[in-house]
Design a binder for these strands. Sequence first.
DNA 1: ATCAACATGATTGTATACAATATTGACGAG
DNA 2: CTCGTCAATATTGTATACAATCATGTTGAT
Lengths: 242, 242
Amino acid sequence: MFGRSATGAVGEATLSEKSSRSEVVYKLLRQAILEQALKPGTKLSEDTIADHFKVSRTSVRGALVRLNAEGIVDLRANKGACVAEPTLEEARDIFALRRMLEAEVIRRLVANLDGAGVRRLQQHVKQEEAALSDHGPLSIRLAGEFHILLAELTGSQALTRFVREIVSRCSLILARFARLHSPECAVDEHVQIICALQSRDTATAERIMREHLDAVELRAELDTDKAEPDISAILQRYARKS
Amino acid sequence: MFGRSATGAVGEATLSEKSSRSEVVYKLLRQAILEQALKPGTKLSEDTIADHFKVSRTSVRGALVRLNAEGIVDLRANKGACVAEPTLEEARDIFALRRMLEAEVIRRLVANLDGAGVRRLQQHVKQEEAALSDHGPLSIRLAGEFHILLAELTGSQALTRFVREIVSRCSLILARFARLHSPECAVDEHVQIICALQSRDTATAERIMREHLDAVELRAELDTDKAEPDISAILQRYARKS
DNA sequence: ATCAACATGATTGTATACAATATTGACGAG
DNA sequence: CTCGTCAATATTGTATACAATCATGTTGAT
């Protein structure tokens, strides 16, 4: 269904599931936002999206409601939807919470991570390295999904849920404020984290993760050019046939 | 709009906001679930709900999608919605995470809570005490909202969001597993928490909160009678005129 | 020229109608 | 009597049509 989805590890179903139209629109919009193709502030007109995906507004609305509940789309009454624009204050708040959540992830993994988990992490990093060459949006998404994969490996659904949400919002923050457009995480830092986890040294693992997140946050710095792109051209790339 | 809403502190807007129909259905369903009037596993038929609230299925679907995104409603494809039924495993997972989140709330409040905040907390506890007499569903909801209010007073939107979600799910867990049907939190424990916060003693405050959450979790114990109630009678009580 | 009031157009919110899927019960073979 | 098949019913998923609200640009008075 998704063509070159390429993750296979972090995502939801293992394909073969026939998604509803609303579901498809949801996933594609989410992907477009997290790959920073749809930037914060971009107006998400129901008609436009419906036309480009060849579905009715009903399906689009369902997707927008879900995205709004996840906090990556703002939905003002009678005034339509747009990609959420986190403020600098919210950004600091979210990074602080992210550090706390991911510290918990690390503590749990140091205690519980097994060989199969390590292999999944290494495989994911390999994908990241492969995607790094084209400097495309794929590497941005994969970088975030590494952190989600870490959370998944704890086995805690609730923790995974929260990490997924907060990583999404961090992606928005970086799209809004980061000077560099490069992937948000350096791949070798991910490798270091895996090593630290294998050595089962909690203090070191926590420190590396903290430094890693500090590095990510440092890339966020105020920027003001916020032209409103027309989303038609962008959606075109996401309108793969059903 | 909500008649005897009675919270005024925790809720969203200060009334005067004209909510959409979908929004109204969302709020009422959520309230009904959190007050344990709609118990875990209850089927939520779109037609039934639409008829009782005198709105179209469209509005109901929007509400169900939101509730699903919050994790308090399960939404299986082509098979309808029902109130989420957390498993015992999920329950332990959620309680563990809740302890972590609320410990963070306490740490932040010890550092930052001001007089105005203390007054809001005391006022809320007063409402809890007043509601305790009728042993109704109101006290159950207020008990949860005390914890949400604590999170709000940290000033962190993200933390508040997560606490709100996890408290909701804890409410579901207690509805499913708790033997006693009494309000989930003892009010005097809330008073103790406020005192500990005022004394700015982090260790004590954290300990009391931990004990408090332990006490809540202890009420969860397997129970098996899960008859499917007809929701018509229940929704009747929530169909206040718009 | 500035600004207010209004009319027009565009977009969202809601309802209804139709299509697709699942559930239920009857029927008949073994 | 039990089980499987199939028709009938009910429920969800989607599209279209209509109502309500908001944005925009024109007109006219000051």
